[in-house]
């Protein structure tokens, strides 16, 4: 499961070493700008800038496709939906076997704008995900005063996603080899057993994990990564970039 930045080969780029807190705040500010923008220019600018950064990161093509195929598809559907169902000024009317298909200019404009917004927003968050380690992100969330209970649950979940997904894969392969998914009914039953087994495994792991953690001094709180002090040049650079983006946003 190559989802997390830990699994990618890290090229020599400054963006990887940038403080996770700075990256997170920068991402949130840019997201707010993207969502509240009503035109095209800023969104296209963000898209081009993100594409340039993504190319610079030299990540595997498969990772890119996995990350962007779903938003791209949704963006395409929204363009169609708005184009054919929303607006008043028709661009073309097609009569086919008694049906009228009308394409509206307002709908096309709105659809393209929403599609650009989706792709710009996804690319901003994708860069954060590609370049930040999960532990750094958790520490940044903790610095931003995210509740401690939430952080702890996030850490436990992250730790066990890989363990449980490996176990799910083993059970799935065993079921498949025994024709567990040969028809819909058997497939459904197999999937129910697979999900139930995962829950059972989670309970078993929980008992072992708690005992192991108590033996190592767990008292209900987990310490998180401590951040180094902010670097002045990182903050100045980020503030300048945000100011530049804000200027373009305002145009």
């Amino acid at each position: 499961m190559h989802l997390f930045a830990e699994h990618f080969k890290r090229e020599k780029s400054r963006i990887y070493t940038l403080d996770a807190r700075v990256k997170l705040i920068f991402t949130l500010v840019l997201l707010a700008m993207v969502l509240s923008y009503n035109g095209f220019f800023f969104l296209l600018f963000i898209l081009v800038a993100s594409a340039a950064i993504c190319l610079r990161l030299r990540l595997p093509l498969k990772v890119f496709l996995l990350r962007f195929c779903e938003p791209l598809f949704i963006a395409g559907i929204l363009i169609l939906l708005k184009f054919f169902f929303s607006g008043e000024t028709s661009i073309f009317t097609l009569n086919f076997a008694g049906f009228k298909i009308i394409g509206y200019s307002e709908g096309l404009y709105e659809g393209l704008r929403i599609a650009c917004r989706i792709l710009a927003a996804v690319s901003i968050v994708a860069i954060l995900g590609f370049t930040t380690l999960f532990t750094e992100l958790i520490a940044a969330l903790s610095w931003l005063k995210a509740p401690k209970g939430f952080i702890e649950i996030l850490m436990f979940a992250y730790r066990y996603i890989f363990v449980l997904s490996d176990e799910a894969q083993v059970i799935y392969n065993a079921q498949k080899n025994r024709l567990g998914y040969s028809n819909v009914r058997r497939g459904l039953s197999s999937f129910g057993i697979l999900s139930g087994s995962l829950v059972l495994k989670a309970f078993e792991h929980n008992q072992n994990l708690t005992v192991a953690m108590i033996q190592r001094g767990y008292d209900g709180n987990i310490p998180v990564l401590k951040h180094k002090p902010f670097k002045a040049h990182e903050i100045i650079l980020s503030a300048a970039t945000i100011a530049l983006f804000a200027f373009i946003w305002k145009i």
């Binding site: 436990f156 066990y160 929980n206």
Partner: peptide
């Protein structure tokens, strides 16, 4: 004391189920 790890594990289960 075992409740937090259990909730974390269930979050991992929900994550995996909703990715299948």
């Amino acid at each position: 004391i075992s409740f937090k790890p259990l909730v974390g594990l269930m979050a991992a289960v929900v994550f995996i189920i909703s990715c299948m």
